[in-house]
């Protein structure tokens, strides 16, 4: 039990995917303008990352690993296989969201299909393999990483609403000031360093 807690705390606070590993910056900047949209994105990412973790773990274990059904070392296919799975999940979310929440679908726009190329999703799948997590740990790690993304995104959206009303010099307006803020937020998150070993 404690190890799961450590995985969660580690992925959310200490090695936050966005603020410490710098993965998934694209949607982090893209959909942080309004809280409602950001929450929708969080939901989508949590779903995709958790389920992608589960499925990629299975694929890795039963198809690609030498001890899989083919009995051959197919691990060189890892990236292409994972991309296929992630893309399918994103497509599924896209279709479902268009059906059930067209407003949110419109608000997320291009960033929804872009979850496919969200390196955080790929990152979590690859990390699961690297860290040699078992199935449950992989799913928990996937979920926690997505939760970390969600926490960072929600915090940043709050800040974004404040800095959008700020008055930066012309050269810093827009994404520049958002990146400065993200940097400062990342600085604050360094306080959690070595909280979990």
């Amino acid at each position: 039990m404690a190890s799961y807690f450590l995985i969660i705390a580690g992925a959310v606070l200490v090695n936050n995917f966005v603020l410490t590993r710098f993965l998934g910056i694209c949607p982090f900047l893209g959909v942080s303008k309004k809280l409602d949209t950001a929450l929708g994105m969080c939901g989508a990412v949590i779903f995709v990352m958790t389920s992608a973790s589960a499925v990629t773990w299975g694929v890795q274990r039963f198809l690609l690993a030498p001890e899989g059904v083919f009995g051959k070392d197919l691990r060189y296919l890892q990236i292409i296989a994972f991309i296929l799975i992630i893309a399918s999940f994103v497509q599924l979310v896209d279709i479902a969201m268009k059906r059930f929440s067209p407003n949110l679908h419109g608000a997320l726009g291009i960033f929804l299909p872009l979850i496919t190329t969200n390196c955080a999703v790929m990152g979590v799948a690859v990390l699961n393999v690297q860290l040699e997590y078992n199935f449950i740990k992989a799913v928990v790690f996937g979920f926690a990483a997505a939760l970390g993304f969600a926490v960072a995104l929600v915090i940043f959206t709050g800040l974004r609403e404040k800095i959008d009303r700020a008055n930066p010099p012309k050269a810093f307006q827009g994404v520049a000031i958002a990146l400065v803020t993200a940097g400062l937020l990342s600085l604050a998150f360094m306080g959690f360093a070595s909280l979990v070993k």
Binding site: L63, F70, L74, A87, S88, Q91, L92
Partner: peptide, 18 residues
């Protein structure tokens, strides 16, 4: 063969689901 079957199979499953 294994490669083709693995990737092709996965593509088929995903495609049908979608």
């Amino acid at each position: 063969v294994a490669t083709t079957v693995a990737i092709g199979g996965m593509g088929l499953v995903c495609g049908v689901a979608l």
